[in-house]
Design a protein around this nucleic acid. Structure first.
Lengths: 357, 357
DNA sequence: GACTGATGATTAATCGTTTAATCAACGCTT
DNA sequence: AAGCGTTGATTAAACGATTAATCATCAGTC
């Protein structure tokens, strides 16, 4: 029941008095069909508004043309960039994207992956929950995380990003820098922090502040005590995410500390509001488009090359389809805006003075 | 080729010496199968790791079990909330979610919709690009937008949200309020602004500032001149989005104007960073979970009831499957944080003074 | 003992597409 | 004219699940 509205191959075939196989061949460009007939078939297919049934095709070819995108937490502010880039690259490659949210839970991550498999995805892109290792599942997988994650992944070069932001701050003349992270368990954050430290020579003093630790004591959304840090002599605050940079920025401004006149604040990720806050945030941007492209093309390659021969039937049924994306790290790009500048005189409260144009 | 790895119904049937139909019936609970046999079939299905082929099922039943989610712009900061809620409700209802991004372009919206149809989605949830009317497409559709959008939609009650925030500000004692919007073409923004205006009685003076107009003149990311507005006597800045509220907040703070000591700032949407900026933003939250649930359940209902009888074959092939979600508006919830308070004395520059705990 | 119903399982058709195998017809060569 | 290669099209068999229709078996009834 519920016969799909549109016409199918046989309707086209019937209306032209040819066989379905010919129509299929004509539309797919395979087999041997006379140019003239191809033209006529194309025309009537168009006229009838023919839309191929993915179900039929999938059943026959064993491929659904759909990729799964597994995210640790869709509500992550970085997610839009990821999803958009992946969706674009996938659709260019002719694939659809099915989303699955693991809501930060490791158990749900497995569950989400299973749901995707049941839906018959040809492959998956996984942004793993921190610390998770992706077990071998029945289809090609590309992992987007940190280069430090064991296994094959594509990701931004967070370490290099850290170095760049450090060099920027050092060049501006900062000698005492507070690095702001949220959670020591995150590979991404550790890479960024490692890079920042590595980017400074021994003349620069750094200290790491973990937001989660402070919040554990003082409650969520509490002040981080940055004003005190500023009076201790810290002139730059390098956060590992724009989210934390924003928090630092507003906290400092509220305390009457001029940014960038007095201290500098930098972030990571170039989130959507980073350009519009005052002062606009200096940050490191990941090249998501490139990352997505690499991930998708590796995935598509694995899918379409697949098992080249049917050989070794019951040999290693799962081993052949292991992760396939080769490790690759995409450089991040420094975006200099108004929130970073040379270290200024001690705590000042100038109302605004020179507004950055 | 490329026979799917897992076993299929016939493998189970063969290994038990029964027919595929029986296996199918046993697993789906339809037809007549003895309880004992059902048990045995279940067991071996489990043992073999049977996963039903969606392709086969879809081909036979004409339903893919997948919904499409069309978004005007995935990079919208509100998107994570929407996607997460939709994905959750859909997966509870047993559906997968295929995403499509129209990247803000009306043409691409149609194209994205077509791609989803080709992929055989059973229905779609569309968050339309502003001003777009969704044409009749071949499947059930739920639209999430504004109640003011003609046609059947589910959405937050933006108007009511506006009224609430206005009442909150009026209650605090504000008498001169600047409403900050981005674009006069947005239904959502107009509803919110309308609601705000309606929430004030005649004692309160309001003025609307459109960011896009200012940026057209002064360039993107420019200052909005809010400090001047403050000196003109505006004591509250009600933005139609947290994104703009954040911009206002940082701009005011940078100008040395104390928030909320001197002026108040409010937003909409309760975006992820709203609680962590200093001062934390007072805002209106949409109940996305409820909205998603309503949209999905209307959609699923339309899909599964569908055309109750095959009657009227070539009558109105498309008319029957028109939009089906009934109009429904979900109330928004006021979230009071630190960015709003009673109007203070004229422009002050107290460094911090009393920090909100 | 034949008839009736209920029960439990099987047969076979079907969804729409792809594709290997087959076939007919025609032009060329020897 | 018989043989051969090429071209253009058809036949038919899958893919995996669902389901209406059919069939066999057995218990109970008159």
């Amino acid at each position: 029941m519920a016969t799909r509205p549109g016409p199918n191959l046989s309707r086209i075939a019937a209306s032209l008095g040819v066989s379905v196989a010919t129509v299929s061949n004509a539309l797919s460009g395979k087999g041997r069909v006379s140019a003239e007939l191809v033209e006529r078939i194309r025309a009537t297919a168009n006229a009838l508004g023919y839309v191929p049934s993915q179900a039929g095709r999938a059943l026959r070819t064993g491929r659904s043309g759909v990729l799964g995108l597994v995210l640790p937490d869709i509500s992550n502010p970085l997610f839009p960039q990821i999803a958009q880039a992946i969706e674009y690259s996938a659709s260019v490659a002719g694939y659809g994207v099915l989303i699955a949210d693991s809501r930060g839970d490791v158990g749900m991550q497995t569950e989400a992956i299973n749901r995707l498999i049941e839906r018959g995805v040809d492959g998956m892109i996984i942004v793993p929950r921190r610390g998770t290792r992706i077990a071998d599942i029945g289809c090609p997988v590309a992992v987007i995380d940190t280069p430090s994650t064991p296994g094959n992944t594509v990701s931004a070069d967070h370490w290099q990003g850290g170095r760049e932001i450090a060099k920027h701050l050092a060049w501006l003349g900062h000698r005492k820098v507070l690095i702001i992270g949220a959670n020591p368990g995150s590979n991404v954050q550790n890479d960024r922090i490692g890079g920042i430290k590595a980017g400074f020579d021994s003349a620069v003093q750094t200290e790491v502040l973990w937001i989660e630790k402070i919040e554990d004591q003082n409650g969520g959304g509490c002040l981080l005590g940055l004003a005190e840090k500023a009076t201790e002599g810290f002139t730059a605050f390098a956060a590992v995410s724009d989210l934390h940079a924003l928090r630092a920025l507003t906290e400092l401004q509220r305390a009457g500390i001029n940014v960038p006149g007095c201290v500098s604040v930098t972030g990571f990720d170039d989130l959507i509001w980073s350009p519009v806050v005052t002062p606009a945030l200096t940050t490191m941007r990941m090249d998501m488009d490139t990352i997505a492209e690499i991930a998708i093309s590796a995935l598509v390659h694995a899918i379409e090359k697949g098992e080249p021969e049917e050989a070794s039937a019951d040999e290693t049924p799962s081993e052949r389809r292991l992760v396939t994306a080769t490790v690759s790290r995409v450089p991040m790009q420094l975006v200099v805006r108004q929130s970073s500048g040379p270290p200024g005189p001690a705590k000042t409260n100038l109302p605004d003075g020179d507004l950055p144009k």
